[in-house]
């Protein structure tokens, strides 16, 4: 029970930190890393709830969801990095256009 609470609260903290990084950091690579932290938090949340059940075995459904999620996350990361490269090719920097912190070029 206490293990559940520790990891559930950790997952919430991770999710919030990831979200904070995602919105606060101007650089796209760092945004992608933050997104991955958010994903880690969400997975940890699901699994800590799966651990919660009364039965000795852990609930397999969230486990299967998280397994799918991990592969989807890595492919989304790869695609996002590819897009970042393209943006860098076009604009010469890894920032989004509307970012107010954009340095002068």
């Amino acid at each position: 029970m206490t293990t559940l609470l520790i990891y559930a609260f950790t997952s919430i903290i991770l999710f919030s930190i990831g979200l904070f990084g995602l919105v606060s950091h101007p650089n796209l690579i760092r945004k992608i890393v933050s997104l991955n932290i958010m994903g880690g938090g969400a997975f940890l949340f699901l699994i800590s709830l799966a651990y919660h059940g009364r039965s000795p075995d852990i609930d397999p459904v969230p486990q299967a969801m998280v397994l799918t999620g991990i592969v989807v996350t890595i492919s989304a990361t790869a695609f996002a990095l590819c897009l970042t490269r393209r943006i860098r090719e076009k604009t010469g920097q890894c920032l989004l256009e509307h970012c107010p912190d954009k340095p002068e070029t």
């Binding site: 609470l5 559930a8 609260f9 919430i12 903290i13 999710f15 919030s16 979200l19 709830l49 799966a50 919660h52 059940g53 009364r54 039965s55 075995d57 852990i58 609930d59 397999p60 459904v61």
Partner: peptide, 20 residues
Amino acid sequence: LAGLMAYTILFIPADFQGLG
């Protein structure tokens, strides 16, 4: 947001069985 999510965890019913 973190506070809100933490609030939901504390209200999971104790006899929650899951899909296991």
